[in-house]
Write a protein that binds this DNA or RNA. Structure first.
Lengths: 213, 213
DNA sequence: TTTTGTGAACGTGTTCACAGCG
DNA sequence: CGCTGTGAACACGTTCACAAAA
């Protein structure tokens, strides 16, 4: 069980979902080939990924679905619950609050902040919007989500870091600075559109290998 | 001007934004080092990226901001406008419709679809929601955005492909199948949360190199 | 025979280090 | 001297191919 690479972690999320699906189909075992088919990757990749944290398969038979699922859940840290603070109660923030899927996976959005007076005090999906000034000196959370306009993003980032948040999911189109002990992921929709724009601008669009998503 | 890799394309989007910023600061030239600092990457990386599509810099001086910006705009295909159809008028779809930034970059959301009768006919930010059945046999667009529940995603995907869309941005947490001539990008927020969860579960959280966003 | 687990080969992207030019 | 452009070295992730086990 050596180091697990970034791309492998993302594929683990996929495997986890596929395992849920095939479990519902009544199977007990699944082969690397089956997992690979549903992922659009090679079976060798699947085996390499799974072997990087232990030997769970049985040669000639495949992987036991339940065991593998439990194992991946533990590795991804989904065997516990995480508290999340969302900053920015605009459209994206509201969409996150409305989506019940996160809660099902163990992510509890327990606080919502916004800088606009008009939004503070509003109740969105059961959570009362608080002023951003309250981020400082607050209870602290495991993760923070930045769903603010880009001009506010770095300030919010600093406030969240000060509140000892250890993971940040950023939707603002800007590279944020965080200390090395904070994990940062950025979802930049404008950049995604620009990637598509680039692909469609190429001489023979689509003949190129599709980017990994 | 040889082939441009995926990671390079994404960095070009970043450079493009940084160039806008420094242009506003009144500069005429910018060094690879300055671009690198704002990106959190190495100056060598910047030079490699920029040299992959031509020599625009002046040794000893740096890169001419205006020229470089124009050049990147052309490469990314931002020197024209793109038509976009959004499928799914729920929270995410609505958030996309409300965001004016896409239009500023050349992406015009010209059609909105939803399968729910209650939403069809509604006007959201100036666009009337149409039934998904109208995707087939419609006018056609450059790109499609899938912002539907996961169970509908593959069907919508097929419909969009049939409507000769050449690029798809998918927000449903599922790997979609598209023909090789269609570019696909997936934004999977659950997976992003799971990546954070994984990072926070590691023995010495944060001591690991931060993932590229 | 089927399918895993894995060392080796391969391919791709990043960093180094320095020649080249202003 | 300052900074770009770039071959070479390096690091990392993917694929191959096959021995080992059920």
């Amino acid at each position: 069980m050596s180091r697990i690479s970034g791309p492998t972690v993302r594929r683990l999320s996929h495997y986890y979902r596929v395992l849920q699906e095939v479990a519902l189909e009544g199977r007990r075992m699944v082969s690397s080939q089956m997992l690979a088919d549903r992922e659009g990757i090679t079976s060798a990749q699947v085996r390499k990924d799974l072997s990087s944290f232990g030997s769970f398969g049985r040669r000639g038979l495949g992987y036991p679905i339940d065991h593998l699922r439990t194992e991946i859940r533990t590795i991804l840290g989904l065997d516990r619950r995480w508290t999340v603070a969302v900053v920015g109660a605009g459209h994206i923030g509201s969409a996150l609050l409305a989506y019940t899927g996160f809660e099902q996976q163990g992510f509890d959005i327990v606080a919502v902040f916004d800088s606009e007076d008009s939004r503070v005090g509003q109740v969105i999906d059961g959570r009362t919007v608080r002023p951003v000034s309250e981020i400082a000196g607050s209870e602290g959370w495991d993760m923070g989500v930045i769903a603010t306009p880009v001009r506010a993003a770095q300030d919010v980032d600093d406030a969240l870091v000060a509140a000892v948040v250890r993971g940040i999911l950023n939707f603002a189109p800007r590279k944020l600075k965080v200390p090395e002990w904070v994990a940062l992921r950025t979802v930049d929709m404008t950049m995604e559109f620009e990637s598509l724009s680039f692909a469609l601008s190429q001489p023979r669009p689509g003949k190129r290998r599709r980017e990994r998503t």
